[in-house]
Simulated assay, not measured.
Amino acid sequence: MTVEVFDPHDMMRETSNIVNDVEESIDADLDLERLDFDNILICGMGGSAIGGDIVADCLLAHSDRTIKVIRFPELPNWASSDSLVLVSSYSGNTAETLSVYDQAVKRGCKVISISSGGKLYEKSMADGVPFVQVKSGLQPRNAVGNTIGYLFNVIASVGGPDIRDEVRDSIPALKKYVSTLTPMDSKPRAIAGEISGSLPIIYSSESLAAIAGRWRAQFNENSKLIAFDGHIPDMNHGDITGIIGNNDIRVKPIILVEDVQSKLMRNVVNDTISVLKGRGLRPYVIRIPGKTVFEREMRAMMLGDFISLHLAFFKDIDPSDVSSISLLKKLLSWKMGKKKGRRSRK
């Protein structure tokens, strides 16, 4: 099937390479020393934070130390010299992330930077902070594969939980899966056709909460489409009333669930679907298979990424354009820099 699409920056290719990027970065040689630490903070925004979410989810059952993802320009008060702080910014110029970096260094945290360069590289070199170089030239949200692979690699290299073999074992199946998503007549385009023209709200079980957030963000950025996300069963204590009671907007609930669930969770999901259907809605239910947490989250993420591209193609818009975000970043960077300058003069 031949379909003409507007993709001037080849987002399809970049998206198709995400699994390859995980494979490459998880096997990269890192010159890092083993460290003693009581907790791990992964600091970043956007795609960098999503990568942190996936890594934290995958390590949950393997770690005896707290792993927390920080999407904020300030470190929590409990972060200390006993904390391993992984500062991740693809561009190296994200204002919020640079702010967290400065605080982590000041507090004496064990800091490692992950970036393609920018101010984060300059600061790390000046402060003697270990720096992990990510390949440049990608849309930041498409660098998530590098972020995921390097985070796994860094954490294992410094003495944290190591599931790199588990991740490597999942790569062949994920590559095969991605090959089914790239044709223009594939599943993502069909799902995008169901969603197009609606207000998608992505709900998931708690185990796929990070992926529901990724879908929402990709619909926002790639598709230029407003979308929201939430969790089951929490949605049944609020959201469901708003969805059912709104007749003015074409709401499309999308429900992401793991293929294998507990009996309790399966009953909750099925009852939720029944109530939505009983009120005239047509929720799109997507069941995600996979042998491990990593494989399931990657499968779900890749499917959503490709759906978001097809939603953009249906609208004949450039999925790579995020000019509004770039403008806001420039403004925020200037204001935060100005505020820091005032502090330093006091």
Rank of each mutant, 00 (worst) to 15 (best):
M1S: 13
V5I: 14
F6R: 11
F6K: 12
T15N: 10
S16P: 01
S16H: 09
N17M: 14
S25P: 00
D29N: 13
R34N: 14
L35R: 14
L35T: 08
L35M: 15
D38Q: 13
D38E: 15
I40A: 07
C43Y: 08
G47I: 08
S48Q: 08
G51M: 10
G52V: 07
L60N: 06
H62D: 12
R65Q: 14
L75M: 14
N77D: 15
A79F: 11
L84G: 02
L86W: 11
T94M: 11
L98F: 07
V105Y: 14
S116K: 10
S116D: 14
L120S: 09
S124K: 06
M125Q: 14
G128N: 05
S136K: 13
S136F: 11
N142R: 06
A143K: 00
V144H: 00
Y150R: 12
V154M: 08
G159H: 05
P161Y: 07
I163E: 09
D165L: 02
T182H: 02
T182M: 03
M184V: 02
S186C: 04
S196V: 07
S196N: 12
A210V: 01
A210Q: 03
Q218A: 08
F219H: 09
N220W: 06
S223H: 01
K224A: 06
D229V: 01
H231I: 05
N236H: 05
G242R: 05
D248I: 11
V257M: 04
N267Q: 10
V268M: 06
V269F: 12
N270L: 05
D271G: 04
L276I: 01
R282E: 15
P283R: 07
V285N: 07
P289N: 01
F294K: 03
S308I: 03
S308K: 06
L309T: 07
L309I: 01
H310A: 02
L311E: 12
F314K: 00
K315H: 00
I325R: 02
K330C: 04
L331M: 09
L332E: 15
G337K: 09
S344A: 15
